[in-house]
């Protein structure tokens, strides 16, 4: 799923492009004329996964809608680094209102377009994990329930990064943030808390739900395209590493996202009408340590006495995902 069937034995199906592919089979990102919806000069940190993910998603959505797209943005890094007045990095109509109301604003834009009989113009709403799983959650749930014709994209960098890396409902257990410091008996974010919003979206019976990362572009683009084929509420949850908040080297942004999937910590799947319909299986299984080690937010797990137990719990969570979604391609839903 997600990748095409072409086997060029080089990088035909895993890299961004390949000079040997037919133009029709190339990714949006390989196109020299791609929209660059989030263009140069934005003020995201070096190696920002959110900036990369947003361009991937919006460029793909622009292709799928032949450019007839409006974006609504929640407050957060993506909004702050792209639009310091009077500059904007956005190459499409783009609205920002508040931190917590992006789904509601998007609903309004979709309703306005419908009232004008302009249903060819589609609406994409986007926000960070804080704006999505916490403060904007009520609006989002309403948007789901009403089945408004909006694709909502959450760029999950696992914390409130724009205000200095505070814990959100998407921060993983064990991670150090400004509000879950690496002190005390159980340093870092607590275990047993947090929200799995893709599953919550599925519980709403949303027509199309998918997870993706910046490490698998073809999969991500395919999901945006499929999402745009559907009318009604849709939800896409994209893992986007944040070098600043995660304490990871800027160069490793894509690699760390890849490790999140290969360890099983971040399952990549899609679901229709509440049922998982496809998973991206693991190609190169890796233990969770490989993912955690390069990130300073987990450094205490490798020095604190509680570390081994915490690591074991994190590995358990990964193994549970692997079982639950059949990530090793051995019999789970596919």
């Amino acid at each position: 799923m997600g990748t095409q069937e072409i086997r060029y034995f080089q990088v035909g199906s895993h890299a961004v492009g390949n000079r040997l592919l037919d133009p029709g089979q190339r990714t949006v990102q390989s196109d020299p004329e791609r929209a660059n919806a989030l263009t140069c000069g934005h003020r995201a940190c070096q190696g920002c996964g959110e900036a990369l993910g947003a361009r991937y998603v919006v460029d793909a959505a622009l292709r799928a809608t032949a450019g007839r797209l409006v974006a609504v943005n929640a407050t957060g890094c993506l909004e702050v680094f792209s639009t310091p007045y009077p500059e904007t990095s956005w190459q499409l109509p783009w609205l920002h209102s508040l931190f917590g109301n992006a789904p509601a604003v998007a609903t309004g834009v979709a309703a306005a377009l419908r009232a004008q009989g302009r249903e060819d113009v589609r609406v994409l709403a986007q926000g960070g994990d804080g704006g999505t799983v916490d403060i904007g959650f009520g609006c989002l749930s309403g948007m789901f329930e009403r089945d408004d014709d909006v694709l909502y994209v959450c760029y999950d960098n696992q914390g409130y990064m724009n205000t200095g890396v505070q814990r959100s409902g998407a921060t993983p257990p064990g991670a150090r943030t400004a509000t879950t410091e690496a002190v005390g008996d159980a340093p870092g974010a607590p275990f047993g808390q947090g929200k799995d919003v893709p599953r919550i979206a599925m519980a709403h019976g949303v027509r199309y739900v998918a997870t993706a990362t910046v490490a698998d572009l073809r999969d991500l683009e395919a999901k945006v395209e499929r999402a745009m084929e559907v009318r009604g509420a849709r939800y896409l949850h994209v893992l986007v590493p944040c070098p600043l908040g995660w304490g990871s080297p800027a160069a490793l942004t894509v690699r760390i996202a890849r490790l999140a999937t290969q360890t099983g910590l971040f399952p990549v799947y899609e679901a229709r009408d509440g049922e998982v319909t496809g998973v991206t299986t693991i190609r190169r299984p890796a233990p969770v340590e490989e993912y955690l080690r390069p990130q300073k937010r987990f450094a205490h797990l490798f020095s604190h006495p509680s570390g081994p137990a915490a690591l074991a719990r994190i590995q358990e969570a990964a193994d549970r995902n692997i079982r639950r979604y059949g990530l090793l391609g051995d019999g789970g839903p596919s």
């Binding site: 961004v16 390949n18 990102q29 934005h42 996964g49």
Partner: peptide, 30 residues
């Protein structure tokens, strides 16, 4: 031939062009 990894030499897979968060790579064509 297509199994070659092209060690140490660009074979135009567009990965750099794709993964740059800053669109700072310009694709010059085949």
């Amino acid at each position: 031939a297509r199994r070659c990894l092209s060690c140490g030499n660009c074979f135009e897979c567009d990965n750099c062009y794709g993964v740059c968060p800053d669109n700072a790579i310009v694709k010059l064509g085949p």
